[in-house]
Design a protein around this nucleic acid. Structure first.
Length: 301
DNA sequence: TTGCAGGGGCATC
DNA sequence: GATGCCCCTGCA
């Protein structure tokens, strides 16, 4: 498929977005890879049976070369997060004074649209783990059970049936640890019930969420992640320990004591832009800019 | 070697 | 809802 240029209506930052922890299916293109443009590194984003080589040309222009299964332009725009009206989202979220400077700081961040099943498997792998390890686990899973993506050295993620047949022991050998059981059982559940998550797309948020919560290993945090990154519901607001720390830091002394309370509070406060705020808070917390040394590392005794 | 924390889930009350 | 327990790995 010939390379194509995609234009965003507002500035985006592909590198910031890919590294923001919403997807684990990316690779930095090495020295043997495509040339970089404007000294910006190139990235490969894996999506279903496609490998997308992304290069930032200008703040609003992305160069894409696809390998494997060609995607229609509109799907490419969604997968790369270029279809969101970021201008409006930033305008609305900036009305909140406490997050305004963070929205500004991470201008360029967008939300990618992932395949719901791939998203579910990804976040089932993420519990009590870290980004390098999650990426390694998923890469190993693709190589072990997935299919080669033609014209590229990459592999697609295996289908639920393949994962279910391989079973928990295979996933354990691949290093998924205690998450192996959850992934294997959830895939087996999908197969035995003949569930195709893509068919859920027309359903309302709460309906999708309650169905996700029925899967073994899926709690509120993972369900909200899949709603946000797999179904594109910006009403979703996954709260992990980092987002929890960010909220506690921005609203010191607030009576919300559990992550569960913060989640409900945030969904009410930010409504249809909650998911975007969440991603900004996550980045801010991870970067450390919200915390003084003493808060992040404990008292210096 | 041991202890513990790391982007959670689940059962129980 | 809040509290323990469970799962596994990497690292100090």
């Amino acid at each position: 498929m010939p390379p194509t240029l995609l234009e965003s209506s507002s500035p985006v930052d592909i590198e910031m977005t890919l590294l923001s922890g919403q997807t684990f299916h990316w690779h930095l293109t090495g020295s043997s890879g495509p040339e970089t443009i404007n000294d910006r590194p190139g990235f490969v984003l894996l999506h279903r049976s496609s490998a997308l080589c992304l290069k930032q040309v200008t703040s609003k222009l992305i160069h894409i070369e696809s390998f494997g299964n060609p995607l229609p332009k509109e799907e490419l725009r969604a997968v790369t997060g270029l279809n969101l009206d970021l201008e409006t989202i930033r305008q609305i979220t900036s009305r909140d004074n406490r997050v305004k400077r963070l929205i500004h700081r991470y201008a360029g961040l967008t939300i990618l649209r992932q395949d719901p099943f791939e998203c579910l498997v990804s976040f089932l792998s993420s519990g009590m783990s870290n980004i390098p390890r999650i990426r390694r686990n998923l890469r190993d899973l693709r190589i072990e059970l997935g299919s080669p993506i033609s014209g590229s050295p990459f592999y697609s993620l295996p289908a639920a049936r393949v994962v279910a047949e391989a079973g928990e022991s295979t996933l354990r050998k691949l290093g998924f640890g205690f998450r192996a059981k959850y992934i294997a059982r959830t895939c087996a559940h999908l197969v035995s019930h003949g569930i195709n998550l893509n068919h859920w797309k027309p359903l309302p948020d709460h309906d999708i969420k309650s169905r996700l919560l029925a899967f073994p290993g899926v709690g509120h945090k993972i369900a909200e992640c899949v709603l946000l990154f797999g179904f594109g519901r910006l009403t979703a607001f996954p709260v992990d320990v980092w987002v929890g720390r960010a909220l506690q830091n921005l609203w010191p002394g607030h009576p919300n004591r559990s992550l569960e309370r913060w989640r409900r509070w945030a969904k009410t406060r930010w409504g249809h832009t909650a998911g975007y705020v969440q991603q900004v808070l996550f980045m801010a917390a991870r970067s450390g800019i919200l915390f003084r040394r003493s808060e992040k590392e404990g008292p210096l005794t």
